[in-house]
Design a protein around this nucleic acid. Sequence first.
DNA 1: TAATTAATGCAACTGAGTTGCAAATATAAT
DNA 2: ATTATATTTGCAACTCAGTTGCATTAATTA
Lengths: 126, 126
Amino acid sequence: MGISRKTKSVKIILDIFENSPSALSVVQLVENLSEHMNKTTVYRILDRLEQDGIVHSFLGNNGLKWYAKCSDCTSHHHSDIHPHFQCNDCGKVECLTIEVSIPKIPNREIEVSQILIQGKCENCYS
Amino acid sequence: MGISRKTKSVKIILDIFENSPSALSVVQLVENLSEHMNKTTVYRILDRLEQDGIVHSFLGNNGLKWYAKCSDCTSHHHSDIHPHFQCNDCGKVECLTIEVSIPKIPNREIEVSQILIQGKCENCYS
DNA sequence: TAATTAATGCAACTGAGTTGCAAATATAAT
DNA sequence: ATTATATTTGCAACTCAGTTGCATTAATTA
């Protein structure tokens, strides 16, 4: 029970994600959409889209929230499993398809792992 | 050039880390030390201790800052390399000594990786 | 077309972390 | 030991991401 009405604002945001290869920071989105909708609306729509498994969220290197289109998430199962990559030069964030295997830890039950890899992206890598 | 004076406040904080097996959230520290020092002071001392390689910082599952005693850091080399574990039940955070190997990524230069593993800790694991 | 219910805008708030500046305190110099 | 200096602290006020309550608006359903 996330999105139940296809409002103008929802369409705009969905469209942005559709045309965006990399992840988007909420701060950016709020800024870019400031002429079209209120920041509260942005936060709420993203929240609902995430509940529906259309996007997933994670935290960037400074603790700020980012969202990216889900390729294989449902409202029940969220593949936050994949690692993310943030460029230390341009700040861009991408979802990675690589597998990172976390070894078992004695006496502890692993539920999820957030992996943020930082470095230089394709463009900033010279 | 972090700490240059062993003030009363610095001693108190160093002592806390000396006697703490797990990591400490800044919010907790500020709260616990509120009778002894100002929150600004806590932030500043932690900052200086980190510069000196005495503690290292990282972000917990909600993006809030945590600090832990360094076992093998210097002011030049910071082993933020190790992963951290946060218990989803009691919220406790620990440094892990396990090695997680990050595969190379084409056209990208990896500098650091933040790995936060979430699950149930020793106590909350039943 | 009217009625219902979800979504939005707005303003005000929360809470972590920061900043500027004056007062206090640790260390170095005399 | 006393004074000079430079660092550290406290305080109050701020920034900025994210949230909340509530009245208004817009989408869906009858």
